Each structure stands twice: as structure tokens, then as C-alpha cells.
Simulated assay, not measured.
Amino acid sequence: MTFSVIARDPMTGDLGIAVSSCILAVGRAVPTARPGVGVVAVQARSRRGLGPSLLHGLEEGATPADLVKRAAHSAEDADRQVAVLDPAGRVAADTGRGSFPVSGHLLGDGMSVQGNMLASPEVLPAMARAFTAARGDLPDRLLAALTAGQDAGGDVRGRQSAALLVVSGSPATDEDDGVRMDLRVDDSGAPVAQLRMLRNLQRAYAERDYEHLALFAPEGARDLYAALAASQRGDRAGARIALEAMRARPGWSAWLAAMAGDSRLAGVSRLLG
């Protein structure tokens, strides 16, 4: 009922999973991850507590292969499908003998794709090829695989939700919780495309791409990003118009005054000064 990809980035050590399904809020059901411990995909009719249990096994020193073998021997989980990845890039997967057709998994170097109730046998090979061929960082490569799976047919029942979760390969600390990305589309007619839009929006926030944010941020904040984008371009008139639009919104004048020391707004002030 689901297709997913788990992988490790050999450059950064980050671990991630991307998943889509024709169920509500697949991000609540399938992916489980912990910085410095690993990533797990639990699919089909697996027990809901299996994901945390597998992560606990990794934390206790078990290998992905050992954990998957133990899960495969659980008679009550005949419709189970699991994949496990650790911070060293070791990966293992299993598709239970009772899993829904078309079902299966494919292992690669530090990655695995898996799915059940797929529209065609080409879904998983297409995902593996796309991940291997993709460029960019881990979230982009995971999304490339998920997109290829959807383009090859995806879930035979249709589409509803998708999720993207990336964590650090190192344990969390007080200064860094280790979660690099946690995006979910819980109910959509085009969940994979919507997930990519969220990824692009998060990238824009991280990289201060104010031109993008001026178009796609929440409507109430677009004037702010339009002012910042105009400041980056050296567009005095554009910055002034955007700031005037912000001041016309209830409460924004007080907010602007409170943010007077913000380095980003200082650039706008210098431009208008």
C-alpha cells in the first residue's frame, strides 16, 4: 500500500527516508528515525510499534540484517514489510510472504527501495535508478526516487500522502536536535509534487532566497520578503512599496519597530535612508 526509499549520504553521513501512499498521513505510520541511530521503514500490515522497536535494536548494537531477520521470523507479521539503515550505511530489508502484490524491495549501496500494492513491477527499479542518477543533497535524491516511483505508477489505489524525513548520522545534542528535515503532506491529490514544493520552500528559507519567498511564503509575510528581495537587488522603489504594504497591515508597524536591529531589515533601512 506504500512505496519508500531509505538512504545514507556518504558525504555528510545524514540518513533519510521518503515515502508516499494512498493512506492518510503516511508520515505518521511508516518512517521512524533517530539521529545517530538509524532510519526504519515499516510498511504493509506491520505492527505499529515495530519501528521504534527496530530503532531500539540498532541503539543496542544489533545490525540491520539481524533485526530484519528477527522481524521476518515473526509469524504474526506475515503481511509485514520493513527496511532498516544504520549510520554506517548498512541496510537490510524484508517483504513478508503475505504482503500485497505487487510487492518487493531492492537493495543498493547504502540505500533500499521497497513497496507493496504497487501499480507495476517497474516502480521499484525506477526508484533505484533515479536515486542513483540524481544529483544534489540527500533530500533531493530521495525526492527524485519518490517522483520516479510515482511516475511509474506508484500505489495501485492512487495517491494521498507523502513524507520526507532526514536526520544526522551523529547523535543529537543540546545545541542540535539532529533533525535536518521533517516534511509531511497528509492529504493531497498530488502528495509527491506537494512534498517537493515544501522542500523548495524550506530551501528558500535556509538560503534566504527572498525572491522565492516573496511568491510562495504565507500571504501575510510576502510583503516582508518582497522588501528583502528588493533590498538584495538594490531596488529602492520596490523596497519602499513593499514596506508601505507591510505597514498597512494591522500590527506590522509595531513588529517592524521591534525588529529594527535585525540585520536583514537593516539592509532595507540603509537602502531607504
Rank of each mutant, 00 (worst) to 15 (best):
V42F: 00
R45W: 12
H73D: 11
G36M: 05
V37K: 00
V42K: 07
G38Q: 01
A62E: 11
H73F: 00
T63E: 09
V40Q: 08
A75C: 02
G51K: 13
T63K: 06
L54I: 13
L67G: 13
A71G: 10
G57M: 03
E76N: 12
A41N: 05
D66T: 14
S74Y: 02
R48V: 09
S53C: 13
A62D: 13
R47D: 13
L67I: 07
V68R: 12
G36A: 04
G36W: 00
A72I: 08
Q43I: 06
R47L: 11
T63R: 08
R48N: 14
L50G: 07
A41K: 09
A33C: 04
G61C: 02
E60K: 02
S53L: 15
A41L: 04
L58C: 12
G57I: 03
V40F: 06
R48T: 07
A41W: 03
L67D: 08
G38I: 01
A75K: 07
E59G: 15
D79Y: 12
G36C: 04
L54T: 12
A62T: 08
R70C: 05
V42Q: 14
V39D: 01
R70Y: 03
P64Q: 05
V37R: 02
A41R: 05
R70P: 03
P35Q: 00
V39S: 09
S74C: 08
E76R: 05
H73K: 11
S53F: 01
G57F: 02
L50M: 11
R45K: 13
G49W: 03
H56A: 14
G38C: 02
A78L: 10
G36T: 02
E76F: 09
A33L: 03
D77V: 03
R34G: 01
L54H: 04
G49Q: 07
D79G: 15
R48Y: 08
L50E: 13
A41M: 07
V68E: 07
V42C: 14
V37I: 15
G49T: 12
L50N: 10
A65L: 12
D66W: 00
E76D: 15
A71V: 14
L58W: 02
A44N: 15
A62S: 13
P52D: 02
A44T: 13
L55Q: 00
H56L: 07
A78D: 14
R47H: 15
E59T: 12
P35A: 11
Q43A: 10
G49I: 03
L50V: 08
E76S: 15
A78M: 10
T63H: 00
L54E: 06
D79K: 14
A78E: 15
